[in-house]
């Protein structure tokens, strides 16, 4: 969550609760709602690393609140993160290991593995379908997230088919 908070602070200084709200607003249902404690712990670590700095702001009839802002070092850190390419999905996953190794052990044949995996993927897909239907179309970020997941799943299924054609 470190970089999410840095990114939000790059826009404008904010205190902890504001950050939690901004997170919820930006990601909608696509991101599980963070609890406030977690936000403060992360902010504390960031402050210790010198990426943010906190300033106390006095409030009448309430305790002072801490407003955080990004330091120059924090901005550099954020820039580096955004600029570097993100790793693609892992292909050498567990299922692949099973598929290659299972026949050697004699525990299961590949076709059964593939079939089971396909059903699993389809059931995931079915869940995503349900999810998509339940998600309001105005929730753009959630929609994109779901569609991304579906496309990954479709790719996994296609790959499963290739495995079946070549290994079976």
């Amino acid at each position: 969550m470190r970089l999410h908070l840095l990114a939000l602070l790059a826009k404008e200084p904010a205190h902890g609760y504001e950050l939690k709200q901004a997170l919820e607003q930006t990601f909608g249902s696509a991101y599980p709602s963070p609890n406030i404690g977690q936000v403060y712990v992360t902010l504390g670590r960031l402050e210790k690393d010198g990426l943010v700095r906190a300033v106390d702001v006095e409030q009448s009839n309430r305790p002072n609140k801490k407003v955080y802002y990004l330091t120059a070092k924090g901005r550099d850190h954020l820039t580096t993160w955004v600029d570097e390419p993100t790793e693609g999905p892992r292909v050498r996953d567990e299922f692949f290991m099973k598929l290659v190794l299972a026949p050697l052990t004699g525990i299961a044949d590949r076709m059964a593995l593939i079939n089971r995996q396909r059903r699993h993927y389809l059931s995931l897909m079915s869940d995503l379908n349900d999810l998509l239907n339940r998600t309001s179309p105005s929730d753009r970020v959630a929609m994109l997230l779901i569609e991304g997941a579906m496309l990954h799943l479709q790719a996994d299924l296609d790959w499963l088919e290739r495995c079946q054609e070549d290994l079976a």
Binding site: G28, S29, P32, N115, R119, L122, S123, S126, I146, A168
Partner: peptide, 28 residues
């Protein structure tokens, strides 16, 4: 789902539906 391969049925089974939740939860 019925899976055909080379003209034969290789798999025939129901699709389980289990999960409910928000996008963040399901995908996570």
């Amino acid at each position: 789902v019925v899976s055909l391969f080379d003209g034969e049925v290789v798999d025939d089974g129901r699709i389980a539906r289990r999960r409910r939740g928000t996008a963040g939860e399901v995908i996570d």
